[in-house]
Design a protein around this nucleic acid. Structure first.
Lengths: 104, 104
DNA sequence: TAAACATATGAATTGAATTTCATATGTAAA
DNA sequence: TTTACATATGAAATTCAATTCATATGTTTA
């Protein structure tokens, strides 16, 4: 239990953690992740659902892909995105719990 | 189980999550949190330990205080900072696990 | 194979967050 | 009660990330 936080934290670990949190701290990227939790979606559908420009979505999807949080496959003219990392949601789940407690 | 993420996510929730992640995504703030996990420390000691300017540390401590992640008390000329939210570490712990798994 | 559609991408723009610098505030000691 | 010490703070400078804009790339259909 608690093996990770008791071991000394070095700079590389800090950087990795920081990197992951940065990725999931942007509202647009978070929204995309929550959308994809329900179903896989094309870039256009995401853009439409969130009312954010196609280009902005595409840029953010790239970031999410590079962090291996989502993956893509082509389907005709469209690119279909889906979650590639379900573990993130156990983290998001904890954060939601955390936030709910703060709000009490 | 999984009560939070299955319920629909609204914009305010996204904002709250985003906000918390932003706070704990900065390397300096993360380092401070990990330092304080071991022991409470004065501003000067933190500055020394991390080799970051006193003023920068002070600014970041303010951010952490405003998010109620740390608290402070005066002791003579010094301000002693300590963790105010242990829940964050269960999140950090999960992220470390997550990162370790990605590295495999 | 030209036109239409969907997505990706590079560069410019905009906006926000972090650090630095100078200095103010608060406490203790000489 | 002046000086030294510890921290906080506002503003400027710097750095970094997100969005927009224009256009390129890739795929399908007429």
């Amino acid at each position: 239990m608690d093996t990770s936080t008791t071991s000394p934290i070095n700079k590389e670990k800090i950087q990795s953690i920081s990197k992951l949190f940065k990725v999931i701290s942007d509202p647009t990227r978070l929204s995309i992740l929550f959308l994809l939790q329900k179903e896989e979606l094309s870039v256009g559908s995401i853009s439409l659902a969130l009312d954010i420009e196609q280009s902005a979505i595409s840029h953010q999807l790239r970031t999410l892909r590079e962090s291996r949080l989502v993956k893509a496959r082509r389907e005709g003219k469209s690119m279909i995105y889906s979650l590639d990392d379900l573990h993130v949601f156990s983290i998001l789940d904890q954060v939601l719990t955390h936030i709910n407690e703060l709000e009490k």
